[in-house]
């Protein structure tokens, strides 16, 4: 997620992750390290960061045949390229909300590709984790590529293409990075999980414009 990557800025070069429990059992660890060893050092081939992430992704087998996605992203590039684009997009979205387009945005969020795996007792809270590229694409479809939000969305899509090193998925419109994007205020102000307070405690919520957009979309008095 954008939020996790932002939280670890400066501490890692690349992050690899899936949106589901990655592997069904420990068997894949056996194949991963076998491939890492046999394909690189055993052959005298230098093992780069991208090679490790590629092997992880190659060996990725999700629990079931449902939607799944896994990707590797450059952290530094995310911070320098994607985050400014997200900030700009958030500002344009705030402008749209202020212009009365809030419900249209919520409609778009509803059909934006979301992540599937339930967490905590089967609740699909994680449906609020949605593919950022998918969302940007739908914004362009709705508001036009020449609109301010369309241009901002295009910048986000371009940035995603730069920061995502590798991506793999089966079904769905996944492009490598998700973002917290609830379609209903009940997920933003979730009493069970204390969503708002927990989310706002993250660096991403505090230091980017995204949470300002969510607050504009789901005002507390609403």
């Amino acid at each position: 997620m954008s939020e996790v990557i932002y939280q670890l800025r400066g501490y890692a070069d690349m992050i690899v992750g899936s949106e589901e429990t990655s592997w069904e059992d420990a068997e894949e660890y056996s194949s991963l390290f076998n491939h890492l060893a046999a394909n690189y050092p055993a052959r005298g081939v230098e093992l780069h960061v991208e090679d490790v992430s590629q092997e992880i992704i190659n060996n990725y087998k999700p629990i079931n045949n449902g939607n799944h996605t896994i990707s590797s992203l450059w952290v530094g590039r995310t911070i320098s390229t994607l985050i400014p684009a997200i900030n700009n997009l958030a500002q344009e979205l705030i402008n749209l909300v202020n212009e009365g387009h809030g419900n249209e945005i919520k409609d778009i969020i509803t059909v934006t590709q979301h992540m599937n795996v339930p967490i905590r007792n089967g609740e699909f809270f994680n449906h609020s984790y949605r593919d950022l590229y998918s969302f940007s694409k739908l914004l362009i479809n709705r508001f036009g590529s020449n609109s301010k939000v369309g241009e901002a969305a295009r910048d986000v899509m371009n940035a995603i293409e730069q920061v995502v090193e590798q991506e793999k998925h089966n079904n769905g419109d996944y492009h490598g990075i998700s973002i917290f994007l609830p379609d209903d205020r009940r997920w933003y102000y979730n009493s069970t999980w204390g969503t708002s307070a927990t989310y706002r405690a993250t660096d991403f919520a505090q230091y980017t414009e995204w949470d300002n957009f969510l607050k504009a979309l789901f005002p507390s008095q609403g």
Binding site: M1, V4, I5, L8, Y11, A12, D13, M14, I15, V16, G17, S18, E19, E20, T21, S22, W23, V49, V52, S53, I56, I70, S71, L73, M115, V117, I119, N126, Y129, G176, I177, S178
Partner: peptide, 14 residues
Amino acid sequence: THINLVWFDACLCR
């Protein structure tokens, strides 16, 4: 130490 690659073999972390 600096970490070059973090793999979250855990849900929802990318």
